[in-house]
Design a protein around this nucleic acid. Sequence first.
DNA 1: GGTCACCACTCATACGATTGACCATCGTAT
DNA 2: ATACGATGGTCAATCGTATGAGTGGTGACC
Lengths: 326, 326
Amino acid sequence: MKDVAAEAGVDTSLVSRLLNADQTLSVRPETEERVMAAVRRLAYRPNTAARTLKTARTMALGMVIPDLSNVIYAEIARGAGDRAAAAGYVLLISGAAAEVRTEILEDRVDGLLYAVATAQSVPDLDVPGAPPAILINRRGPASSPSVVVDDRAGVALATRYLLSLEHRRIAHVAGPQDVDTARRRRRGYVDAMTAAGLDVPAELTVESTFDEEGGAASTAALLRVTPRPTAIVAANSNAAVGAMAAVREAGLSVPQDVSVVGLHDIPHASYLNPALTTVRMPLAEMGGRAVDLLLGMIAGDPGGAVMVTTPPELIVRASCGPPAGR
Amino acid sequence: MKDVAAEAGVDTSLVSRLLNADQTLSVRPETEERVMAAVRRLAYRPNTAARTLKTARTMALGMVIPDLSNVIYAEIARGAGDRAAAAGYVLLISGAAAEVRTEILEDRVDGLLYAVATAQSVPDLDVPGAPPAILINRRGPASSPSVVVDDRAGVALATRYLLSLEHRRIAHVAGPQDVDTARRRRRGYVDAMTAAGLDVPAELTVESTFDEEGGAASTAALLRVTPRPTAIVAANSNAAVGAMAAVREAGLSVPQDVSVVGLHDIPHASYLNPALTTVRMPLAEMGGRAVDLLLGMIAGDPGGAVMVTTPPELIVRASCGPPAGR
DNA sequence: GGTCACCACTCATACGATTGACCATCGTAT
DNA sequence: ATACGATGGTCAATCGTATGAGTGGTGACC
């Protein structure tokens, strides 16, 4: 900036105010043009570290995604990244959860988004020296700030679809019940079942992890129940993929013997065999809302627990059909 | 730091040297202990921006992944992140390729890793003011620094496997041929075919994109060729997923009518129907080597084109079998 | 003709660390 | 008694930007 100022024959403070569009500044057009010309000629770009040091703001947000191989975070991150960019922030993603790295992230960003779905320990939000942080796709203890989608409605929609196909023995491959997201999904299943006047036998709900392996194992167990369930609503689509594999493994077929529906419309879904019927959740919007909330907190708002209520959407493909007897 | 120094009754410079383990410093054990106690009591953590401003080093590396939903980048990023952490660096991932965001990233990191697989324009490495940058999983023009795996050997391995099953009419769903990675994969296919004494009819190679949709479309075209190919080696596993879908779409089955093998062992592979036979490439190692190369360049090395030659590994599952007539 | 309000800028300090240069004290060898 | 090299620190400048507080000049107004 010193070079630019010298080149334009002005003080650095003028350059600074000009570049930051200081409202209280009045400057002659010709001077402004001279400065801008110097900026261009020298290809000047402000030094982020110096600016951050002075203003105590990094203009960056951090997003912690322990499991980068879970594709739903790609969509959440897309929504978050776009919204952040619109507000003049960069979104920096960290693939690792290790606390040490989070600490290193903390003073490079003005706020943190934790995208942690599994049952790992909830990060400590509201640490004294640390920037504001919120949970995404998950709720924490008490009133810690968070943004989620309406998982309950999503799973209820999936379940109602199976009910509309005249299934009655519908099982649920539930997620880990120490995670609030998984509990809300289970509640959606129970809601839809009881609303249809059915009771919900305990043996038709199995707790599982959120991955293919868990979905497969739980489904294998469910298939040994008699009478056998005719349909399965899985807590997420990875588990649904595992569920379909387990059905085949048992010598049965989807959807003739067992229908399967998954939550989250992953890119692979339509290429599976059979193509997986899913419920699409507003994930990108959740990412965007999370950024909104976080920016608010950076500005001093208290920050609460937000739920994105954009209605889930059923994507009908080939993995569901009427139950065998019909 | 000023507070710590005051608390311990020493100068800030002593605190700084102590925390940075300055070798030229000699200090009384009791003084050191007093300083460290103050550091702990005040929960002091150095200010990254100030340190960066002074030292002109951020101790962070950036990785640009335009397509976060492609799971192979998760493994590459894992390898890169671990290696970076071991060297005391943080790995910051950016999901967007937009040049503007890259520029914003540039002065927050000491070096950049570009993980761009598709045919989009090659980023300008070696920009004057910018930190060193390298391509990952792709080569650029001339001798721009890059790290790749031995794609040629990987596809050759896949092709040889099909040959060993006595396939002769083996088709190749190739990636976009303006991307060097896709060209090297095609060469691996040609290598294996000619080494087996077969010629490589032009109509059995179709150029495609790296995604399911492209794989499906190309495969549909291949299945109309007469005589029909009995096996397909796909340029990557997403395309292979599309290929399997297209085979079913044509009323044929995998592997009875057509065998399919994919490159990269994606997590879903073993849960597909049929489970997809793949070739596992050393992706995490590639990420690690990329960080090594980049750190070298940051230290002043010239940086060349590296190929990770760790042998690819064939993961046999259920998507390949002997050709129909056998 | 003096005061006042702009206008168009400049001055100087601070942000929080790092680091080369310097300094006081002390034991020891000559 | 003096010089000398360690030992155990301190001083002060600097990194690049932001910003509150000036400052000289000009025109308007009474």
